[in-house]
Design a protein around this nucleic acid. Structure first.
Lengths: 100, 100
DNA sequence: TCTTCAATTTACTATATTATGATATGATAA
DNA sequence: TTATCATATCATAATATAGTAAATTGAAGA
């Protein structure tokens, strides 16, 4: 096992990839299945450039992958840890205690 | 349930609280049980000021709590989601595939 | 080839985060 | 009260992140 310090850097970068409201919304969309960029823009009302940059960050951290079909790029979540963490976050923040 | 946008902001802030190598190391220490600030400084070799700021951030996001005993403050993790996420992260990043 | 569509990259600015040094607080002992 | 220990806060500078506009790439149809 790598030493803690080194792991801490890797894990922190991974978490930074998730720690943005726009990227979380993107991941919520992708959690229900593969989507192309236009669909993601429609679903989140984000600017196209901004979407592209956030997708780029998600790719960089190996959180999502994409495949090209003609001119269209389809993105999907390719990370088991991400799905597990989203599950924890959903139960913690979206299901309970929403009435404060 | 709150709308996604609002939840996304809250969750992103929570994740930002975790997304720093120093804070992850602090949480690794606290995962084994309550520790005071001096112990955390010794264990992580961080500067005192830096430690204090990171603990402050962790408190702000309700990730840790503390209790005072005389002059000494004891910190501990007070968040079930944090422990679950750390567990996922540990399995993903610290146990497997460490030999790349 | 020329044009257009889908998406990315680049450049720039605004804002947020982090590290560091100096100072302050709160609790206790002398 | 004064000194000291444990810790927090403040100020500042360096760095990272995010948003926006303009330019670029890659694929496909006219």
């Amino acid at each position: 096992m790598k030493d803690m310090q080194e792991n801490a850097n890797i894990v922190a970068n991974f978490l930074k990839g998730l720690a943005n409201p726009h990227r979380l919304l993107i991941l919520c969309e992708l959690a229900t299945g593969e989507k192309n960029v236009s669909e993601l823009i429609d679903a989140t009302s984000m600017a196209q450039t901004s979407m592209s940059q956030h997708l780029s960050k998600l790719k960089e951290e190996n959180i999502v992958v994409f495949r090209r079909e003609h001119r269209t790029l389809f993105y999907s979540i390719d990370n088991d840890a991400v799905l597990k963490i989203m599950d924890v976050l959903y139960h913690e923040f979206c299901e309970k205690g929403d009435d404060k």
